[in-house]
Amino acid sequence: MPDETPTTEPSADDASAVVATAEVPPEPDPVVAQLAARFEVGLGDGLRDWADAFGHLVVRVRRDAWRPAAELAKRDLACDFLSFVAGIDWRPADKSEGDEGGDTSSPVQPTEMTFGAAGAEGRFQVFAHVESTSRHWGVTIKVDVEEANPRVPSWVGVYPGADWHERECWEMFGITFDGHPSLRHLYLPGGFEGHPLRKDFPLLAREVKPWPGLVDVEPMPGGDEEGGE
């Protein structure tokens, strides 16, 4: 449990943990708690926080514990299978505030920055999921990334499959992985500018013309006359 851990910043972490676990039952899965205890023992201070997200363990580690966390998962927890390494940008997307033109059709997200399970410190996070093929459990490991200087150590030495995932993450978010053999474009053509999955990367097609589905708005059957919200 987060309150038992001698974490370095208890106040911030506890607040975010409460938000994250508000939806799930308070008693974590026994396997999840057991796995979390293993991380606590193995990483000590390196473990910032953990949460139980629908039966899956989510741990957040310090940046210098990012690679040790992978080694721990692979060696001690038998997590031999690398599922993915990816990034996330917690910043809310730019929205045109109800004015005409621009992107009006996509779902409206909250405008304040909130963080998911196990919390976060800044805008960017890298998260990875590893699994055990023999014990059938899995762990999601998160690490905060500085916005000004986004870099984390690479996992290629532990899981060779991280190679392409990290290239993708570098391309999509602009996060550098120290120790990666060759960070070059994976999906996009060489001259592509920008990092598409950052929230401030606009989809120009949406700005230029409104969503085609808006042309034929029909009242929904069984709904009110105006066609719902």
Partner: peptide, 11 residues
């Protein structure tokens, strides 16, 4: 009728 998914994350 309008699907809003509560806050959280899930794998």
């Amino acid at each position: 009728r309008i699907i809003k998914v509560p806050e959280g994350e899930c794998w």
